[in-house]
């Protein structure tokens, strides 16, 4: 048989797969690794002590100084990033699942009822400010209610708000791909719905999925930060919002301005990670693995 294994194709294909798996692994680590890795930092010095490299006279070794409780700010930030991204990843996953499920259902069935619900949901999303809903929900919980319940309810709101827009996008794409001749052909040779979806439709959704992730993930980060800054937070949860609020609250105390700048930089970085990854991978080329 004159067919040698195509080295270029296979290698590239495998590289692509490994990249995806590596990304998933990193994501999993961030989400799953328990807080033991970033254990509750101990008090090391006065609150808002300057970084060790800035002021040689201090007795601690905190690269970024200390926070309002005198803990190493680097450790606090690490913990906060982990906590915030965990929330953001869970939220994004939920949005993605909902968007794909609803969008594919709507795109494949073209159901009028679902279409109407989606359209009105979309209108609702545009008409009602998300933050207002979030604040209402957060304040309506009593102070004694468990944090996870507050947390979950707010997540649910965020997810519900994000679904209609994304689902319409996916539904439109699924519909147009379903009309192509290659889908007709694969149905004609007897492929099941799932097979057709996996092989023919899904590759066309990658860009939309990437776009949804890139816009939803920063949203979760921003909302967490914003709410914590407004004081709507739970004591157990130390995210980036808490770090921002505390360093901003004591902006004239010690060297808190420095920590404020660092915190803002970190927040921006965390929020923009998906965009940066998209840019680096050049998603379109990535999806097509173009020659």
């Amino acid at each position: 048989m004159g067919h040698k294994a195509m080295p270029t194709g296979s290698v590239r294909q495998r590289c692509g797969r490994y990249t995806v798996w590596a990304l998933l692994l990193i994501t999993g680590l961030v989400v799953v690794v328990p807080s033991s890795f970033t254990a509750q930092p101990k008090r090391e010095a006065n609150s808002f002590a300057p970084p060790s490299w800035y002021d040689r006279t201090v007795q601690h070794e905190c690269v970024l100084g200390t926070d309002y409780l005198g803990r190493s700010y680097a450790a606090v930030l690490g913990r906060a990033i982990s906590a915030t991204t965990r929330v953001a990843f869970f939220g994004t996953a939920a949005v993605l699942f909902g968007v794909l499920a609803v969008g594919t259902l709507q795109g494949s069935t073209q159901s009028k009822l679902l279409g109407a619900i989606l359209a009105s949901g979309n209108l609702g999303v545009m008409a009602v400010p998300q933050v207002a809903v979030l604040i209402t929900i957060a304040t309506s919980w009593s102070r004694t209610s468990p944090a996870w319940m507050v947390n979950t309810s707010m997540m649910a709101v965020l997810v519900l708000f994000a679904i209609p827009t994304g689902a319409r996008l996916i539904a439109e794409r699924v519909r147009s791909v379903n009309q192509t001749r290659f889908v007709a052909a694969s149905q004609a040779f007897g492929a099941s719905w799932w097979y057709t979806f996996r092989r023919d439709v899904f590759p066309h959704l990658l860009e939309d999925i990437a776009w949804i992730v890139a816009s939803v993930l920063p949203m979760f980060v921003a909302v967490e930060v914003g709410l914590a800054y407004l004081g709507i937070e739970y004591r157990e949860f130390e995210g980036l919002g808490r770090a921002l609020a505390k360093s901003f609250g004591s902006i004239f105390n010690g060297i808190a301005q420095f920590q404020l700048v660092v915190t803002i930089a970190v927040i921006l970085w965390v929020a923009l990670i998906p965009q940066i990854i998209l840019k680096l991978l050049n998603v379109r080329g990535f999806a097509e693995e173009s020659v």
Binding site: G9, T180, R181, F182, A185, S186, F189, G190, A191, S192, Y195, R199, D200, P203, H204, A287, E288
Partner: peptide, 20 residues
């Protein structure tokens, strides 16, 4: 439109074999 532009030609041709 007769072939999926996101997949290599060989993969599209393999599909019927895999399905059946």
């Amino acid at each position: 439109e007769s072939l999926n532009d996101r997949r290599r030609v060989i993969d599209s041709v393999l599909d019927p074999l895999l399905v059946h």
